[in-house]
């Protein structure tokens, strides 16, 4: 085993081994059932995208997966161990990037802060934070405050913070929702590159079906009320993707229409249900 600074999975896991297992996960808020029994297994090293309508409970699901919120029923296990608090090998990129960075810390200090609590010495902390910031192309902005950067750059700081933490799995909640289209495409490719380079597992929530298909090895479609898994689509688009070429392929078009139909069908059954209830 070599000691390269690349954060990779330390323990023995092959590419198709189960990393994160979600069994019958349900979550209610005061009698209001949001998640109604989610079952899914995330494989080590895969890129899984989660799509579903607004309010379906995608953020809630990520919070349960990370141990930030306790599920009402069911369980989450990471490498066979029950998740009850945020695991050390998991990092999260939050939906609200501008509010998830500390405005009083420089970019470098923001990225290095989690390492401080992990009792990593100053020199090593700085080295790891710099490596992560270089990975996301921000090495010339490390001494600025986050709010001095553009939205897309702030999101890259949040990604660098996750990478510096050397996780084996990263959860991302609509990470590119509030940046412009060009920045969004850049960040998508950056994420794909980083994932390939570091061999981490990524679970990414998005509203955007194109984005989900473009990024994912598998797309998890959520729907119905209370929310369950309505489909799990394997993309088979290979490890190398291109914003123009990949999106122009027939496979891509088929995948996106399959996911789109799942979400629409689910919308229709929902409204049919509510009409029936009224009548």
């Amino acid at each position: 085993m070599t000691t390269t600074p690349t954060p990779t999975v330390g323990k023995a896991t092959g590419p198709n081994d189960a990393l994160l297992v979600v069994e019958n996960l349900g979550k209610s808020f005061g009698g209001h059932e949001v998640l109604g029994g989610i079952n899914v297994t995330v494989r080590a090293g895969e890129f899984m995208c989660i799509v579903g309508p607004s309010g379906a409970g995608k953020t809630t699901l990520l919070q349960c997966l990370s141990g930030l919120t306790a599920p009402t029923t069911g369980a989450v296990t990471l490498r066979g161990e029950r998740v009850t608090e945020p695991p050390a090998e998991m990092a999260i990129v939050f939906q609200d990037y501008s509010r998830s960075l500390m405005p009083w810390l420089s970019v470098l200090d923001n990225v290095a802060l989690p390492l401080r609590s992990a009792k990593i010495g100053k020199a090593e902390r700085t080295e790891k934070a710099m490596a992560a910031l270089t990975e996301v192309g921000l090495k010339d902005h490390v001494h600025k405050y986050p709010w001095q950067l553009s939205g897309g750059m702030q999101q890259r700081v949040a990604i660098a913070r996750a990478l510096a933490y050397a996780p084996s799995i990263v959860l991302m909640d609509e990470p590119f929702a509030s940046v412009d289209a060009q920045t969004r495409a850049d960040l998508e490719d950056l994420t794909l590159n980083v994932k390939r380079h570091l061999g981490i597992t990524i679970l990414l929530v998005t509203h955007d079906i194109d984005e989900a298909v473009y990024l994912a090895d598998r797309v998890l479609v959520m729907g119905k009320k209370p929310t369950v898994v309505v489909d799990l689509v394997e993309t088979h688009l290979g490890p190398h993707r291109d914003q123009i070429a990949t999106k122009a392929t027939r496979e891509f078009a088929e995948l996106r229409s399959r996911v789109y139909k799942q979400i629409r069908r689910d919308d229709l059954t929902n409204s049919a249900g509510s009409i029936a209830a009224v009548g």
Binding site: P86, A118, Y165
Partner: peptide, 29 residues
């Protein structure tokens, strides 16, 4: 303190000492 920051602190397992030193106190400054 911004609730998102507290979730960041939990998910990155910040110690109580560091939460006070790097989140609560600077936010309140």
């Amino acid at each position: 303190v911004e609730p998102v920051l507290l979730r960041v602190a939990s998910s990155y397992r910040l110690s109580l000492k560091h939460r006070i030193r790097y989140i609560y106190v600077p936010h309140s400054a």
